[in-house]
Amino acid sequence: MKRFPIAGMLAGLLCVAACPVARAADNSVVEQRAVTFNHAQTNYMLHCGGCHGTLGLSPPHSVPLLRGQAGWLVCDPQGRAYVDGLPNVTRASLSDADLADVLNFVIFTLGASPGSAHAAPFTAREVSAMRAAPESTVPLHLRRQQAVERIIKVCGAPKSLLDYKPM
């Protein structure tokens, strides 16, 4: 058995006791100011934020911008059906309830717009039904264009929603 000098052990203990990193109380101010996410926001970050951006601001032409725009999609049944049929939405590895919460966060918080003001929130039952329905044979970019053109006409959505053009 190896023996350590008592002086060395005491010096080590004093260093640990005096070291600010080792004391939890030194982090309390930082922890109080730390950003915290609810369950839906955490799931958004894990399942959507990598492509759509943590704030819903994605690089041009990669995926549609969500921030301040996604809410327009639920002002009309065709736009809502577009959201319901997005492959990465229907195939997300989340429960129906968790996916409904993420959709509600995206539509009513992150992407809130006048178009979402009177829309009903997504429910686990609706998510379950959309997952059971077969996917459309219409290419995704055409479904988006049709939905956006309709919500511009029917809901008064801004024409800037047409700015997204996949490369």
Rank of each mutant, 00 (worst) to 15 (best):
101 D>Y: 03
71 G>K: 04
69 Q>R: 03
116 S>K: 03
95 S>Q: 01
131 R>A: 00
47 H>P: 04
37 F>Y: 14
136 S>Y: 00
31 E>F: 11
126 E>T: 07
129 A>Y: 09
37 F>P: 00
36 T>G: 11
133 A>S: 08
144 R>I: 10
95 S>M: 09
142 L>F: 12
107 I>L: 11
133 A>L: 07
106 V>K: 01
112 A>E: 01
120 A>L: 04
45 M>A: 15
120 A>S: 08
42 T>D: 05
34 A>R: 00
46 L>C: 14
115 G>D: 11
64 P>E: 02
81 A>C: 02
127 V>H: 07
73 L>F: 09
99 L>C: 11
29 V>G: 14
63 V>Q: 08
31 E>C: 05
66 L>K: 03
46 L>P: 07
139 P>N: 08
136 S>R: 01
118 H>R: 11
80 R>S: 12
43 N>R: 02
139 P>V: 05
47 H>C: 01
52 H>P: 03
88 N>I: 15
120 A>C: 04
45 M>N: 03
32 Q>S: 15
132 A>I: 04
100 A>M: 03
108 F>I: 02
70 A>K: 04
47 H>L: 13
116 S>H: 09
108 F>P: 07
106 V>A: 04
101 D>A: 15
143 R>D: 06
143 R>M: 08
120 A>M: 13
73 L>W: 03
57 L>T: 12
79 G>K: 10
92 A>R: 13
95 S>A: 10
59 P>V: 14
72 W>E: 08
65 L>Y: 05
46 L>D: 13
84 D>E: 15
76 D>F: 05
58 S>L: 05
